[in-house]
Design a protein around this nucleic acid. Structure first.
Lengths: 130, 130
DNA sequence: GTGACAGGTAGGAGATTTCCTACCTATAGT
DNA sequence: ACTATAGGTAGGAAATCTCCTACCTGTCAC
C-alpha cells in the first residue's frame, strides 16, 4: 500500500543536521579522502616511523603543503610525532582506522552476497522490512 | 635561487603525483568523507531500497542539495537507482566498500596490537624494515 | 656567536565542495 | 488535455581544500 501518511518528513523522524563542529569520526574519514594522506599512512605502515623529509620524498609538492597533510593526519589521530634532535619522527596511529573498520562491518554481508553472486540473499535481506 | 639540487628526493624513489583524473578508489573514499552520505548508506542498509523522498526526510537540506549527494554516491558506485513509476528507488551497492575494507586490512595488526596494549609487538614490526 | 638544516606557520590564489533558488522533465491521476 | 508529484539540472554564493611563496623557530655543527 501507500505509506501510512503523506510525507510529513522532517517532523517525525530524526532529522540529520550537519553539526558545525567536526566529530572525531568525521576527521578520520575526511583525512582518508586524500590519496596523498592514504599513501602517507601506507608508507608509515610498511616502512615504520620516519622523519618528514623521508616521507616527503615520495611526493611532488612543496614542503609546507606536505606539512599541512601531516597536520590533518595528526588532528585525525592517525599519526603522531616524536621530536628527535632537529627532526620529527612520524608514526602511524592505527586505532582510528579501527573505527572505520567498525563502521564498515555491518555492510560486509552485503558485498559478500554480491561478490558470491547471491543476489537472492541480498534481496531477501532488503525486502525484510517492507 | 631556491633550486633544490641538494635534495635527492624526487629522483630515486617513485614520486607520487596526484593525477588529475580521479581513480575509482578515490571516488569511494571521497564519497565517504561526508557524514550525510555515510548516513544515507546506513539508511539504505538498515531500511533497504527506498525512494528519494523517504531518504531525504532524514536531512535538513533542500532537495537539490540532497540530490547532489546521491549523485556522488552513484558515481562512486555505492548506490544505484531503479525507476519505479515516477519515483526512483535507491539501493545500496556495497562492493566498493569491500575495496575500502581491503585497504584497511594491512593496518589491522597495528590497531590490534595497540588495543591489546602490546606496544612491544608494534615496535618489533616497525623496526622490521632493516 | 654564525650558518646550515629540519620543519613548521602565515597569508593568499585557485580549485572544489556544499548549499541555495529557480527551473526543467517525466509520470500519475483526473 | 491539465495539474500535481517525484526528482533531477543550471547557475551562483559562500565555505573549504590544496597548493604555493615567504618567513619563522628550534637544533646541530663550527
Amino acid at each position: 500500500m501507500n505509506t501510512t501518511h503523506t510525507e510529513r518528513a522532517d517532523a517525525d523522524p530524526p532529522v540529520m543536521r550537519v553539526s558545525a563542529v567536526q566529530q572525531p569520526e568525521d576527521r578520520v574519514f575526511a583525512a582518508l579522502a586524500s590519496p596523498v594522506r592514504r599513501e602517507v599512512l601506507r608508507l608509515l605502515r610498511v616502512q615504520g616511523p620516519q622523519p618528514v623529509a623521508e616521507l616527503a620524498a615520495h611526493f611532488a609538492m612543496a614542503r609546507p603543503s606536505f606539512s599541512e597533510h601531516l597536520k590533518v593526519l595528526r588532528e585525525a589521530g592517525l599519526a603522531s610525532e616524536t621530536k628527535v634532535g632537529r627532526q620529527r619522527l612520524y608514526q602511524l596511529e592505527a586505532v582510528p582506522l579501527h573505527e572505520v573498520q567498525e563502521w564498515l562491518g555491518p555492510f560486509e554481508q552485503f558485498w559478500r552476497a554480491k561478490l558470491a553472486g547471491l543476489s537472492a540473499l541480498l534481496d531477501s535481506l532488503e525486502d525484510d522490512e517492507s
